[in-house]
């Protein structure tokens, strides 16, 4: 920290001796500025984070207190059928939605990178779902679309197809929830679009002269050069997929038969329906560790497939 912000003493004047406090402030002014943030971080992030870890080793119930301490919650998580089903469903959900969402985003971004008519209109139209997608209103709309007598089945009926029970059939319901998430590819698409704009045009020109077709150019020039953005989108989408709550909560309430109960919903159910904060904390920690492991694996894997220009 320099003293550029302070006036220098006039020529000839005796240098004024600074007090210890002023000196301390001067030396640590940057840290002092961020003290409010540090306090907020400690109180609202570190403390809940730490206390949830402590609670996860108890049977803490909001209205009954703590009666037992131990690893029983973690044992239950891996032995209770309802919880293991939710864990498996969440992993399935992440593995279905993340690749499909990234492929959809990249595909649309690639098309929107060409000079076509009404380009801005299309870009806006494809981006809007990602703004609206997480909202309660869209989830309610989704439910109305896919109910037995909803718009989708009505339209299928016009072409002579008897639509299935999308929301109440255990085989279909999870796909309806996935579809809502995949539909919200706008934010990933914008990042891909920016990355595609950054690919040097002369590389394509050289490849064309060498006789490479569009597909070859896409897989040998475009994809390698945008892998940093693919990697970034992959990490953020994995994290978001594990946190998904609104869709299943509003559209199916985790049903039918728990086929759409994701881990975040289970945390809510234990924490706020059953008031069992100990179990809710333990499930949240298992989810945190699972996301952490996947993220670490992704970071380890990047040296094999992500190409940074520097």
């Amino acid at each position: 920290m320099g003293n550029q912000g302070y006036q220098t003493a006039p020529a000839g004047a005796l240098p004024r001796r600074k007090g210890k406090f002023a000196k301390f402030v001067e030396q640590n002014i940057g840290f002092i500025y961020i003290i409010p943030w540090i306090i907020g971080f400690l109180v609202f992030k570190v403390y809940p984070f730490g206390s949830s870890l402590v609670y996860s080793f108890t049977d803490f119930n909001l209205f009954k207190g703590i009666k037992e301490v131990g690893v029983m919650n973690y044992v239950d998580i891996f032995t209770d059928k309802k919880i293991t089903t939710a864990l498996i469903t969440t992993v399935k959900y992440a593995f279905m939605t993340v690749p499909l969402k990234l492929i959809a985003a990249l595909f649309i971004a690639y098309i929107l990178n060409f000079k076509i008519k009404c380009l801005n209109l299309f870009r806006t139209a494809y981006y809007i779902p990602s703004i609206l997608g997480g909202s309660v209103a869209i989830a309610v709309l989704w439910k109305a679309l896919f109910r037995d007598e909803g718009l989708i089945n009505t339209m299928l009926g016009y072409i002579g197809i008897q639509g299935p029970s999308w929301l109440s059939d255990t085989s279909y319901a999870i796909w309806i929830i996935c579809l809502l998430r995949i539909w919200q590819f706008g934010s990933a698409m914008v990042l891909f679009l920016a990355a595609l704009k950054g690919v040097p045009v002369d590389l394509y020109e050289a490849a064309t002269i060498d006789g490479a077709g569009k597909w070859r150019q896409f897989f040998t020039i475009t994809i390698p050069l945008i892998t940093p953005v693919i990697f970034y989108n992959l990490i953020t989408q994995i994290v978001q997929a594990f946190q998904e709550f609104n869709g299943p909560y509003i559209i199916t309430q985790g049903g039918p038969r728990n086929s759409t109960t994701l881990v975040a919903m289970l945390v809510y159910n234990y924490g706020f329906k059953l008031n069992e904060m100990g179990m809710a904390s333990a499930i949240a920690w298992v989810m945190f560790i699972a996301v952490g492991i996947l993220s670490v694996l992704a970071f380890i894997s990047q040296k094999y497939w992500v190409y940074y220009s520097d």
Binding site: D148, E149, S165, L167, S168, T252, P256
Partner: peptide, 17 residues
């Protein structure tokens, strides 16, 4: 059946068409 009811997609019975 409960499946039929779930397929109705209504928040509650009084709001079920």
């Amino acid at each position: 059946t409960i499946q039929t009811l779930a397929g109705d997609g209504a928040e509650s019975l009084d709001k079920n068409p």
